[in-house]
Structures are given as C-alpha cells and as structure tokens.
Simulated assay, not measured.
Amino acid sequence: MRHRDQWILIEGPFHPVSDANRDEITVFFPDFYDLGSSPALGGAKIHRLSTEELRKNCEAFLGQKPAAAPVGKAPWNEPLKEHFATALQRTQDLIREGRIKKTVPAVFARSEQTVTPQERAQMILTLLEAPKTLYVYGLWQKGEGVLGATPELLFDYAKGHLRTMALAGTCPKSESTRRESLLHDEKEMQEHLYVLEDLMSVLHPWGDVKTEGPKIVELPTLYHLKTDIEIQCKTKPEFFSLIQQLHPTPALGVAPRSAGYKWMKEFPGQEGRGGFGGPFAFIGKEEAVCLVAIRNLQWNETSSMIGSGCGVVAASELEREWRELYQKRLSVRKILGLDV
C-alpha cells in the first residue's frame, strides 16, 4: 500500500492473526458480502520503501525474468448490458415502493487469463506514477490476488484523528463538456448527499464531525464529488468494529443501511465478486488505514476480472450509467498499463 509518500510491503508467507491490533502490521481483505470470510493476515517481514527503491526492485526483478505477454492480450468479455438493466430496474422498483433510496450494482469484465509475477511487477511500475489522489494497494498469495488504485478511503486513523470521505457522484471526462458541473447536477448531488448523511450519522458517536466540501476531484479519466470528513475521536476505535460499522457506505452499498445490502448478490452477473468494493485494511496497534477496494484487477489461477459499480437512484438513466460503468473499467486498465 502507498501511504503518506511511502510504500508499505508485507512479505509472506502469511498466517492468520486473531488479534490484529498488535505491533506488527496486518492486512485484512475479506469478501464484500462476508467480512468473516478471511482473517487478518500477518507476514514474515515488513518493508518501508521509497518510490525509487520500489522502482529499482521491480526493474531488477524484470531484468532477471523472460518477457511475457502482458495481461490484457487475451480478449476481455464485457458484462452484459441486459444484466445491468435488470439490476437498475429492480433498484428503481424498490425506490418507487419507498423501500430504498439508492443502491450500487456492480458489473464485471472477465478474461480467461491470469496474472504472472512479471506482469504484476510491470503493473506496479506503472502504478508508481499514479496521482496522489489514488491509494495504490494489492495483495497476492496462492495464485490469487488483487492490484489497483482506489480514490476512496473508508478511514485513516492515527493519533486520535479519524479521516474518511464521502465519494459519490461521477462524470467521465469524455462527457464533461456536454454535462452540467457535478456541483450543479441534481442527480449526482443527491447520490453524494445520501453517502455524506449516512457517514455523519454513523460517525457522530465518535466525536464532533467536521466536513469540507463537496468539491470536484479530478482523476485520470473521471471527475468525482468528494467531501472530506474528520473527527478528533474521544477514544481509540477498535479497528475491526469500525470496519463493520462503516462497510459498506451507500457509495458501494444501499441507502438507507437499514435495508441491508446482501440481497444485491441476487443481481445477475455477480459470480466471483470477491473483495470488489470491500474493505482493504492495513492495521497496526495504534494506527490503521482502510481503503475501499475499487478500481482494481482481481485474478485467480485461471482468470482475471475488472469490476465497476455506479449509484442508482430514482433519476438514473440506463445509457448514462452504462457509459459510466465502462469508463470506470477503462480507467483501471489505463492506470495499470493494460491494453485498451
């Protein structure tokens, strides 16, 4: 994980850790729908590297290995539009019935090609250039892994200070000249406010909630609405409890929270979602950073996939949301240096 201009690397082999709030840093990356699906993992060594040190390590590794065809050469099977149309229709039916206000269907492009160590090193080299507005992260072991650069922080806690964000409302740069500014787009602002109001409600017991925003954040291929949230906590959170309280925010789940979110896995095309949109946390005894695991490539021993999600509210339109989903997947391929 890239954090505060430093690269934190945990070297395996990994082992389950029952008490993650201890001196060593542990990593936690469970299934989106089941936070109990994977334990926190401790490693054999922890390294803290500068960008240049990590670059030299990757280049040295690649210099010792034969070149391989980059991941992405195999055809990508794009998600089916009719699957997303079904999810959008079911969501808007629930909204009309007054049962929910918003949910976030996800779709997945899939490839019958896995990721080799050489490809992984090359993608890391590309990610070294990712803008500071993105949190670079990854985890791989036993033939499975994830690598990506997310703009979304679930929380960052250090020295009594808790930071998080409401990140919802999107406009692809390719559409920015023919759409209203996000700050004046009623649909996108409403989507953003659902997330902001939810987070403020959940976090209020920890202390006075201060916000800054909303503002427009520029990423390589997208614009997002973002409100920064800060709290000086009265007491130190128990980090796993905090993850359980926050995940998923309406930026990836459902508004209101009381409607639950696990029913979303009944939407078509959800097979193998894994950790997409779930928490990705590095946890220490006194500090913790937890990302929202979006904008990533996930793989196993035989295949790879790239997911994207979009917020559906009453005013959502199929074609506009479908284009946004594609642009988000395209941004992943670009930031990882994959063929587009």
Rank of each mutant, 00 (worst) to 15 (best):
Lys159Asn: 09
Pro66Ala: 09
Ala166Ile: 08
Glu53Thr: 05
Tyr157Ile: 04
His83Val: 05
Val115Leu: 05
Lys56Tyr: 06
Ala74Phe: 03
Glu53Asp: 03
Ala69Leu: 15
Gly138Ala: 09
Leu128Val: 03
Pro151Tyr: 05
Glu119Tyr: 01
Met123Asn: 03
Phe61Thr: 06
Ala74Asp: 04
Gly145Glu: 04
Val107Trp: 00
Leu153Gly: 04
Arg55Glu: 15
Lys101Leu: 12
Tyr157Val: 06
Pro105Ile: 12
Glu144Ala: 09
Lys81His: 13
Gly143Asp: 10
Arg90Ser: 08
Gln118Asn: 12
Thr164His: 03
Glu129Met: 09
Lys102Pro: 00
Cys58Pro: 09
Ala69Pro: 12
Phe108Val: 04
Pro117Arg: 12
Ala149Tyr: 04
Val107Leu: 06
Val71Trp: 00
Leu94Cys: 14
Glu152Cys: 11
Gly160Met: 10
Leu54Gly: 06
Arg163Asn: 08
Gly98Ala: 12
Glu82His: 14
Gly63Arg: 15
Arg99Ala: 13
Lys101Asn: 15
Ala109Asn: 13
Phe61Cys: 11
Leu154Ala: 04
Lys81Cys: 15
Ala68Trp: 00
Ala74Leu: 07
Arg110Ser: 06
Glu144Pro: 04
Phe84Trp: 01
Pro66Trp: 10
Arg110Trp: 11
Thr86Trp: 11
Asp156Trp: 13
Leu128Tyr: 04
Arg55Met: 05
Gly160Ile: 10
Ala60His: 11
Asp93Thr: 15
Gly143Trp: 13
Leu162Ser: 02
Phe84Gln: 00
Leu162Trp: 00
Leu139His: 02
Ala106Lys: 13
Gln89Pro: 04
Arg163Ala: 09
Ile100Thr: 03
Ala67Arg: 15
Gly145Asn: 03
Arg55Pro: 01
Val146His: 02
Glu119Asp: 11
Lys101Val: 15
Ala109Ser: 08
His161Asn: 15
Trp76Gly: 00
Gln64Leu: 12
Ala158His: 11
Asn77Pro: 04
Glu53Pro: 00
Thr164Ile: 06
Phe84Glu: 00
Met123Glu: 07
Gln113Ile: 03
Ala74Trp: 01
Glu82Pro: 02
Gln118Met: 13
Glu97Cys: 12
Lys56Glu: 13
Val107Arg: 01
Lys132Tyr: 11
Arg96Leu: 13
Val136Pro: 00
Ile124Ser: 02
Gly143Leu: 08
Arg55Asp: 07
Gly63His: 14
Lys81Gly: 11
Ala121Val: 14
Gly138Glu: 03
Tyr157Met: 11
Arg90His: 07
Thr103Val: 14
Val115His: 00
Pro117Gly: 06
Glu78Lys: 07
Leu125Trp: 05
Gln118Ala: 07
Ser111His: 01
Lys132Ser: 08
Val146Phe: 05
Glu152Pro: 08
Lys132Ala: 07
Gly72Cys: 06
Phe108Met: 05
Gln118Pro: 06
Glu78Thr: 07
Val146Ser: 03
Gln113Arg: 05
Gly138Trp: 00
Ala60Cys: 11
Thr133Ala: 10
Ala68Thr: 14
Gln113Met: 09
Glu82Leu: 05
Cys58Asp: 07
Lys132Arg: 11
Asp156Leu: 14
Gly148Ala: 06
Leu127Glu: 02
Gly148Cys: 04
Gly145Gln: 05
Gln89Tyr: 13
Leu162Val: 00
Arg120Phe: 12
Gly63Tyr: 12
His161Lys: 10
Leu127Thr: 03
Ile95Pro: 00
Asn57Phe: 10
Met165His: 08
Ala67Asp: 13
Ala149Ile: 06
Ala87His: 04
Thr114Met: 14
His161Ile: 07
